[in-house]
Write a protein that binds this DNA or RNA. Structure first.
Lengths: 410, 410
DNA sequence: TGCTTATATTAAGACTCTATATTTAGTCCG
DNA sequence: CGGACTAAATATAGAGTCTTAATATAAGCA
């Protein structure tokens, strides 16, 4: 009596089956079709085992046999091998960059390739109107998703996972702290519930964290590196990757940069875009009738784009601003890389393409403050796409983790 | 042909056996003796399985049957259960705190209980002589180890693992960076090789990191918390624990606090002990003939102990110093906790017992700079023992991880 | 057609855990 | 002192996994 613990019929022997199935699927995920022989080498399992696993995975919808057995001329002798291919369209995911001023949603296959994308304005820039209330923002996001789905010619039923990026800290349950900062609550009005309403797996996360995931995906060869991704438009935010995995915490406050208020020469968590505009404005006021290209706009009209464009043309005043931005960035890097011994720091976000020069100068200035010759400071190649790409990456990862047991649908 | 991958006789079926064995051993490690029934509940396995695993583990030397079957009056009816007990003396470990001024070594059993401890001076305090050369320092450490072993009445053959803590960053291969800072090389002169010379498993790590491990061991209930441990004697160093696991990196520079040079109101990585002395000295020079207890010593003689003792007695000048220390500490906490969203910050090291008041004041001042009401700032209860305890903890952990397969000796 | 080659399939063996029945070691009680 | 009672230990059978080795298959090539 009293001898029926919990596990089902034949106990934990199936556990190892699942582990192996996951290993095989992991070897094939997003990659070229493989033969059993290749998988044997990759997994260390026997041919018999690999083939039964592949058959199971095919039945479940994760794989399909691709007929081009001996194609690619890998060999010509002997019986042609079965080739199994990863079904990148077994199901689909949605990644949303729900920014302050605009919402972008993309539908992607399991390889992370976007097959539909749409953008909608939200809290139009320059407008002085109060921020969108929660229901309106939720509707905007859903509309954007539907538009992206329509473009991909898919329906709600084809979607397995939704990930939304918001410019706010997000805790482990998907909520953003309220009360302290009303902005955060308006950026993330219970967005996590959007998934449940449609029966999708769903996650909400901070935009900088997701941008970091996107950079991790590009993977500079070594998967072991540690880096920070700084989102730097109007306000600063960072995502931290240590040893190839994103730092997370239940309150979701990792990478908040409010503490920069205390750092000499930084003194605020305003972004580089904000500072470019601010510094240029002040400088123009000091030097009315400035002769360079930047003199063409009034102090009130000047934007960060003006500054970067003028610097390209050699405007001395703009170059001085660039230099100050670089010093600011260098100091931020000192704090992050000094404390965490990072390998590199990436500046990302929409203005990243304009910051390659700033990053290079920051790298140069860094040596004044910190000995870290290995540290790379670079502008992200992803730019405005980083956040959305990261959302997709996380969505695909979630599917991957839940993969076994069960078919792609469930 | 070509069908013999690598695994041995019956393949990866034994893997699950090992996993289960490790689970059982993990359930018993350092805890009270258990019966099969208890282990069934803990592991979810069947009685038959648990018993065979226990028998195997007993043969390997990890467990032993304790005869007091029905002792403790847990029940009186039925056949008495076999009770298996963890053999805390299956082998032993050595933890060494190889500080600048003194070396402390302790021998501990697998429960982490010290059964022998010894201390030797190294680079005597106050002396102006150059630092010990490498061979001498290695000899000092070995002497200390031998003394601890002698006290425990054990020999080299009883030791399975050695962990050494040094006041320097340590990379993943156990080396400290040379050239840049000669001090580091002298603190860690290839200490990792001491293990191989005696056939012990060996690790070298940064002292602050190990202090963090020791605090983790105390475990405030929730194993999920994130905190920093600040070692704060002459120089500052920190160990970072995120979500219950220590942050590490191949270069070993995590927790180096050189970047505090850039933080307003901190401006250096000198420790709180250094600052207590320095501030008191300056203040005494400013106020010659100071009436309070602190006036009893000359500016040149004053030490941090004097300051804390005088503050206890209400010396106004000392209290002013305490207040400045608290502000400094608060700012350090802002940087660490703001960036990493920590749950608590512990000040550890030899002077920790004197810093309870400083920590409390820092917590109070923190609100000026950062909203983090959940953050606790406390002085560690471990004090001067923290580093050594952490070294022991790491050594025991290493044994635990290597535990299966094989007997404790191997 | 037959030989060669590389793969797929199948059956047997070893190992794991579970499930159930049986034995054992005690206490308790008449 | 012997017999019920109880809870644990043991023994046996069953289902599951992987590997191993033998066999079958699908091509190319002479």
């Amino acid at each position: 009596m009293s001898q029926t613990p919990s596990p089902g019929p034949a106990g934990s022997s199936q556990l190892i089956r699942q582990l192996n199935a996951q290993r095989v699927l992991g070897c094939m995920w997003g990659r070229e079709p493989s033969t059993a022989t290749e998988l044997m080498h990759a997994t260390g399992l026997t041919r018999a085992t690999v083939l039964t696993l592949c058959r199971d995975l095919t039945e479940q919808g994760w794989l399909q046999v691709s007929e081009n057995s001996r194609q690619a001329g890998q060999y010509t002798k002997g019986r042609p091998a079965l080739r199994y291919a990863f079904r990148e369209d077994a199901c689909h995911v949605i990644g949303v960059d729900a920014g302050l001023h605009q919402v972008t949603a993309a539908v992607a296959n399991l390889r992370g390739v976007e097959i539909g994308c749409a953008t909608r304005p939200s809290n139009p820039e320059g407008s002085e109107a109060p921020l969108q209330p929660a229901p309106e923002r939720r509707r905007t996001i859903l509309d954007t998703i539907d538009a992206a789905l329509a473009q991909a010619d898919l329906t709600h039923a084809d979607v397995a996972c939704l990930v939304i990026a918001v410019p706010a800290p997000v805790d482990s349950s998907g909520d953003s702290p309220k009360g302290l900062n009303a902005f955060w609550g308006l950026m993330n009005p219970e967005l996590i519930s959007l998934g449940a309403e449609h029966g999708w797996d769903c996650a909400v996360d901070n935009d900088a964290n997701l941008a970091a995931l996107a950079e991790l995906d590009l993977g500079s060869g070594a998967a072991e590196d540690s880096f920070a991704v700084i989102l730097s438009g109007e306000r600063l935010g960072a995502g931290l990757v240590m040893d190839g995995s994103l730092l997370h915490q239940s309150r979701g406050g990792i990478g908040e940069l409010g503490m920069l208020d205390l750092v000499q020469g930084v003194e605020s968590s305003n972004g580089l875009g904000w500072w470019a505009r601010h510094l240029a404005r002040e400088a123009l006021k000091q030097a009315p009738g400035h002769a360079g290209p930047l003199g063409a706009v009034t102090p009130e009209e000047v934007t960060s784009e003006h500054v970067f464009a003028a610097a390209e043309q050699g405007d001395l005043l703009a170059l001085e601003v660039i230099d100050q931005l670089a010093d600011r960035l260098a100091r931020i890097c000192v704090v992050l890389a000094g404390l965490l011994d990072l390998d590199r720091i990436l500046v990302s976000g929409a203005i990243a393409p304009a910051l390659t020069d700033v990053a290079a100068r920051a790298k140069h200035k860094l040596a004044q403050y910190l000995y870290a010759p290995w540290l790379r400071i670079e502008a992200s190649a992803l730019g405005a796409d980083a956040v959305r790409r990261g959302a997709i990456r996380l969505a695909v990862d979630r599917i991957k983790d839940q993969a076994l047991p069960g078919a792609p649908g469930a």
